[in-house]
Amino acid sequence: MKRLAAFIGFFLLFLLANRFLPEIIDPYYLHLFTLSCINVILAVSLNLINGTTGQFSLGHAGFMAVGGYTSASLTFYLGPKIIATLDFLPAILAKNFVFLFALLGGGLSAAFLGLLVGIPSLRLRGDYLAIVTLGMGEIVRVLILNVEAIGGARGFSDIPAYTNLFWIISLTALTIAAVASLTASSHGRAFLSVREDEIAAEAMGVNTTYYKVIAFVIGAFFAGMAGCLFGHYLQLLHPNSFTFLKSFEIIIMIIVGGLGSIFGAVVAAVILTLLPEALRYLGPVKDWRMVIYSLALIILMITRPQGLFGNWTPDFRRWWPFRKPQPVA
């Protein structure tokens, strides 16, 4: 009951944010906020695959692309028809209903690809898995390039602008909450055991096959929804946005944050989204910003290989004012 109340509370809060934030905050900052949130979803979901389950995936951009393109096809081709049949609803509701449908479609299609990619993970380990996931991502991209109905090499344009602050905030919060809750559960410990020692995990009754595949499926699901948000925000999807460099970018976020730390993934995703923007203001050295970015990455890895936060996660519940007092150990 308390949980339901919290959900409704957040729902209303996010609706209010959606209504009033654009009036008080500069659009440029809102733009950065939106991009940060999408990267947070990507980083947190990849962290479940790489950090928690220890399956080295370099194909996250592929999941994002599949989710983005599927959802955009849904809203672009099916959306108008659905809205037409829902004409008894207020237009704004019908529109958001279509978007919810697209989000789920994008997430599920990416999850299906995750299932396909997860299967090789049963036979392949470490670097071999990394290169196969990278390869799958590239295959997806080249296939998209060859389908004219979704824009091919020109890119998919005129996607309806359904992404708004409400969806951005809700999905980011949902991703973080769901992944964090999953990680802190019995199933989450099963994911961790696969990362730590597969043979011991099997011997302790953990079905490692299942957990490896399911990590890919869940991670891909959220990445697909991020792709959907991305496409309906920019109103344009282009295959060049989903090269392996995008996958590298997300991997870098979770490594910089500290592999396995959700908190670290969130912070690093925000920092690394804002950093190249911030470097724009450096005036004469602004041409150097990508060089500075890569140098910073190398130096960070040499001086602090465990990432900014290691696998440390702050205990937010400790600061929650209404929690029940706990016995001191």
Binding site: A178, S181, L182, S185, S186, H187, G188, R189, A190, L192, S193, A201, M204, G205, V206, I214
Partner: peptide
Amino acid sequence: KIACHLHYQTSLFGSV
């Protein structure tokens, strides 16, 4: 606790 996992009844969604 990981070794207890096989006795858990809760589904993935339940544990989230």
